[in-house]
Design a protein around this nucleic acid. Structure first.
Lengths: 197, 197, 197, 197
DNA sequence: ACGTGCGGGACGCCCCGTTCAT
DNA sequence: ATGAACGGGGCGTCCCGCACGT
């Protein structure tokens, strides 16, 4: 058989369907059918639709190259730039015309699916913490006028808005606006502050 | 009965349910029940769930005080600041714990509901155009290094990311990060460029 | 106003919708809309969908020229021939591509709509009685081997089968098969029997 | 439970409900309830109400003993007589007080349900072709004045009219009128023509 | 008396996420 | 591992009644 396991195929299909239709609109039947798996097989591998979404989300986050953010060989702010370069490149592939899966989930998922909600939050937190670490490293000695966590969130906010706009089909490639407009502005202000010492 | 008409009550309930649960997860039954209306009455007033969503969205956009953006009594960039002050204040009310309805829809709605998709896009476009007008007015004579539409989108992107994060329950009030971090940075860079003449 | 009354317009629309879609599949909304009448006006003129159907059916039957069957100026069997010639011509008009409304109702309507059921039966009975009278007149003195009512039913059966097949889109114009095959056979056998005296 | 499978039970119930109420008036809920099946199980076995109707119709046609029409041990016209004897006997059972299911569908179904419409047409065509073959065999050498296909349609028309009348509750058992009046007349005229050689 | 819009609830077909028997 | 049982719910539409307006 070409597929080593149905589980992997279902996760692939789940990511695709969640991305294409959103969490609520995607259905177990559509996912298993896209995975060429029998519908009944779903619950051999996942407790529920929610747990599938969590696995999909985790794997998606694992592909975001958070490792770039802890690559000690480069200056802290460059790590941030390189990281967002990577995720922007990923988003501009034609397999990702629906924006960032994580941003879409953050906007759609509610407390009615508590476990999933918590999963989304945790992944967000992991991301912001990695960025915060670099921001703190970028201005270690100076009297800083910025709060690293605030800036980290500001970056992620701008990035998420851009990817939300990708799904909303704004007039220009939105992720490029983020890369050419918001990201440089924010980071250059950090550099300015950091050299104020 | 205190309600002047069931239609208004259904729109109110629709906004609430869409906000609370998202577009796909909200149901006609829940909406009409929240409006104390019989389910069958829904289609006396709306052709479909999609058209209700469009009316809800339009009314929501009408409440965003776009008029502030064209108030000639104030300097252009101040109009932008005041406008976002207003929408941020609105978001921080406890009736809006779910983030910005427009941002949520932009992230959730797909092309499977074409009419709704187009409606979301149009409202986005109207918003960006209003901001663009002010950005152009802010730097009329100088050699500008910024593209007004890009900057407008950058602001909306950052705002949307912040409101998406509102639904995602980040640790701090996210809209305040936007107001205190991203918005001043972007606008002050415009001011700096504008005085370069 | 161009319409003398909405009632007449609704009956017209009802006949068209019942013919196009069948009794159960046709809806009040579709009928009133086709009549350019507001939905609420329906019940000013008709007690129910069933009573509309009865009025439609009655008017349809009134257009079948039963008077030909009692035209004393012609021989009895000629009356039958002429009558069926007329209804066949009516059916072959392009406004009647759906077969005979009466035959369609006879096949679709059940006892769940008792009043309508009875109306269909009565119209059928009126028709067969008119034909029976002519068959009895065609062989008044001879020892008849045929039961006039049976033969009348046989004619109507064949005619109905033909019109049912019209809706079923048989390969050839079915009503012509009836006129050229079944009708002559049955009538000529009556004539033969009648001359046995 | 005595039922070997719910699918078979649903087909049985579907035939009964379609027969009792007609295609449009019969509902999925009524069918599954009659089959003692949960409503949601329906779509495990059938894509839609239309496809159930097609299966029901096919099974109904398979029970019409078309094999009698190709039984080479008997003279061609006798095959026709025997075949109609069989279907008439079937119709006179008290489980078939609603007339012939195929005839009812032929009258009720419209192009709005295209697939079903086509299925009805195909079954009709199969039937008429089987009869045509016998009519052609009945007069192999003589100069025929009849078109076999026309006569086949005339027979089926008359039969359908009779069964339509069964649902319409005519005064006498209508199928017997067909057997004692139309069928002998038509066939004997064939026999007469065949001996004209 | 008729036009008119909406209240009203039941029901249409279809599909959901999940569990169970084989 | 699979196909089917299972019940609840999705959106849309049904036929009908009512209250108000003319």
């Amino acid at each position: 058989v070409p597929q080593p396991s149905l589980k992997e195929a279902i996760i692939d299909a789940g990511e695709a369907e969640f991305h294409d239709r959103g969490y609520a609109a995607a259905g177990i039947a559509g996912i298993t059918s896209r995975a060429s798996a029998p519908k009944g097989s779903f619950y051999n591998h996942f407790e529920s639709k929610e747990t599938l979404a969590l696995e999909v989300l985790q794997r998606y986050a694992d592909g975001q190259r958070l490792d770039i953010l802890i690559d000690e060989a480069r200056p802290p702010l460059d790590r941030i730039r390189d990281h967002f370069d990577f995720v922007a490149k990923r988003l501009s592939e034609d397999t990702h015309v629906r924006g960032c899966l994580l941003a879409n989930f953050a906007a759609e998922v509610t407390d009615e699916t508590q476990t999933l909600r918590r999963g989304v939050n945790e992944i967000h937190q992991g991301w912001v913490r990695a960025i915060v670490a670099n921001l703190e490293a970028a201005a270690p000695t100076s009297a800083r006028t910025f709060v690293p966590e605030d800036v980290a969130w500001a970056l992620i906010d701008a990035y998420q808005g851009a990817t939300v706009r990708t799904r909303a089909s704004g007039s220009r490639a939105p992720i490029e606006n983020f890369l050419s407009t918001t990201l440089p502005l924010v980071l250059s202000s950090i550099e300015a502050g950091s050299s104020d010492s």
